[in-house]
Amino acid sequence: MRELVVLGTASQVPTRSRNHNGYFLRWDGEGLLLDPGEGTQRQMIHAGVASSRVTRICLTHVHGDHCFGLPGVLSRMAVDGVEHPVHLHYPASGEAVVRALVGVAGGGVDLRLHPHGSAGEIADGLDVVPLHHRIETYGYRLREPDGRTLLPERLAAAGLSGPAVGELQRRGRVGAVRLDDVSVPRPGQRFAFVMDTAPCAGAEELAEGADLLVAGSTFADDDADLAADYRHLTAGQAGALAGGAGAGRLVLTHFSSRYPDVAHLADQARARAGEAAVVAAADLDRFPLPRRRTREAGGR
């Protein structure tokens, strides 16, 4: 199962209806907790996300609204008797903050610390790319390998069925029939997480071809000067990011408390998002990842 559970959607200041931001991504056997702000432990209870489901915790940066929920989550995992290793990924420059937060939690979890200081793959299929914020910040991308979709009519025409099909998939060829002859490319699914940042090449790299793109939309386009000062995206910039990258769905979040209603932010993003579906997230929303796309040979 692959699904994004939104635990909170506020930015620096929570509101009556929006908790500090936090996100849980179910990805097959992995459970990634992204940017757990204050109150994340309680939001997980409301969302029905058991602490035992968390296998990785990913921090984009160490501003409080993105990490101050970490001690509570770790404490809950200890109380729940979570036995599997939990991997914590974070920018290397935030080491002192992370160790202080982990120290407050008091232990009891097999926590593995993984600081990173440059772009690259930090776990199987999980990449980080630098963003442009006021402190060292990274976005995350989770991807599966590209594959191929078998076409039944081509298999039948080639006279292949049963065990021969399995052999074809393993070896890439059975007799004169190649795997490419009876299949089309299938892009692997991609999830991208682009939080606090001004527009930058790193955000574009992360968003490229994402089936599901989560992006901060802290300010309305009318407040572009504020967005530039704080190095955040406006709604329109988030939409342009999705549209330029060919993303399938854009989930807007990390809203400033100055906007009690964010419908106009979704409209501003939608106007620049091209074919991407746009939604302004609310706390406890769920977004299943779409079915994998099949690409015809020679097509996009």
Results as ranks from 00 to 15, higher is better:
H264D: 15
G166L: 13
R270I: 06
L33V: 03
G94N: 08
H116C: 09
L59G: 05
G31V: 04
V194M: 02
R76V: 05
D65Q: 15
P290R: 11
T55V: 06
V182H: 04
M44E: 02
T40L: 05
D110L: 11
H114M: 10
A157Q: 11
L34E: 07
D211Q: 07
D181S: 13
R18Y: 00
L150K: 07
F287G: 00
V279Y: 09
D222Q: 13
R300L: 12
L250R: 10
L25A: 01
D124P: 10
H132K: 14
M77D: 03
Y90C: 04
G139N: 05
R292Q: 13
G188S: 02
R134A: 11
P288N: 09
L34W: 12
M44G: 10
L265N: 10
R16Q: 15
L212E: 01
V73I: 08
F193Q: 01
C67E: 04
P36H: 10
V194K: 03
L74V: 13
R148L: 07
E208H: 14
H114L: 13
D229G: 11
A50F: 11
L142D: 00
L32T: 00
A245P: 01
R154F: 11
F191W: 06
S257V: 13
L59Y: 01
L241R: 05
V128Y: 02
L34H: 08
R171E: 11
T9D: 03
D267A: 15
Q12C: 11
P130Y: 03
V109R: 05
R141V: 02
S51W: 12
